[in-house]
Nucleic acid binder design. Structure first.
Lengths: 151, 151
DNA sequence: GTTTTTCTTTGCTAAAGGCAAAAATAGTGG
DNA sequence: CCACTATTTTTGCCTTTAGCAAAGAAAAAC
């Protein structure tokens, strides 16, 4: 039993837990301020302009079930933010892509969400920002890998 | 406009977003494996053995509404994991504390949740673990402060 | 001693999310 | 070509998560 590992794991567990709560609150506020449901914001956040996605792709990258995605897309479609067309090659597939309205909104969303983080980061040093990047990057990689193995 | 800041903010925004999704999936799996609802796990995770808490305290530290907490506590109470007694000094207050059964469970939960993170962290260097700690710690502080200011 | 304030709970509603079955399409073996 | 299987999405139904507003209950203030 590696004592040092146990200590570090405990500390990181605790911190990650707190960070999660805070970031969820942050996302909720941001989505609400932009008239979106949290799930809609999360979905829009990952679709890139010009690309098209299947329901499954979106479900996988959001860690949600396909049925849940259908509903989220229903909402975005109703607001004319995304298009949903049957794939011609394989008509079982849906091709979800941003409408012009959607592209405009997503552009604004990404810009402003980054600005929000810029606001948080502006008073610390470039080095500390790099430390944040590096730390979170490492952690993200680990959790992501762990999930693939244990899902 | 600080270009470097904008770049860093963008990168951190993206990473944090991904980390969040992964950690949520991780929490959900862990809670399920232990026969708990996610909200219950999150609540148990923050109550310490021997201490007692008001509904408000718990709501605040979980970033949830008091009414939501009442329901979560209802569930934990039904499973005899927490006690709920009226405060004698001020009978408006509830005093929520862990039962013996609750203490045992929480002990096990914290242990195993830390172990899960230990599992993820075991193959990287002590230095990288420190980088994770430092990065997440910095970020958590920033988001937390930002929330207080903007809530 | 009534009014105001504070803390918790209750009723109601919305949002988030999954499972299982259905619908639609594609592929495959005879 | 036809039946059967596999894949993708959707639908119906249910649970979980969450907040708001009003009600209850107790303390504090006037």
């Amino acid at each position: 039993m590696d004592v040092k590992l146990k200590q570090q794991a405990s500390a990181i567990t605790e911190l990650t837990f707190d960070l999660l709560r805070c970031c969820e609150a942050k996302e909720k506020m941001f989505a609400k301020d932009h008239g979106l449901k949290v799930a809609e914001f999360r979905c829009l956040r990952i679709v890139e302009a010009g690309k098209s996605y299947s329901v499954q792709e979106l479900a996988t990258s959001m860690h949600l079930s396909p049925s849940r995605l259908t509903r989220i897309i229903d909402g975005l479609f109703a607001e004319k933010l995304v298009d949903r067309v049957q794939s011609i090659e394989d008509r079982r597939f849906a091709k979800i892509s941003l409408t012009n309205k959607g592209q405009t909104l997503v552009g604004k969303l990404k810009e402003e969400y980054a600005d929000l983080h810029g606001e948080m980061l502006k008073d610390i040093s470039v080095e500390d920002r790099d430390k944040i990047y590096e730390g979170i990057s490492l952690m993200q990689g680990l959790v992501s890998t762990w999930l693939v193995k244990n899902a």
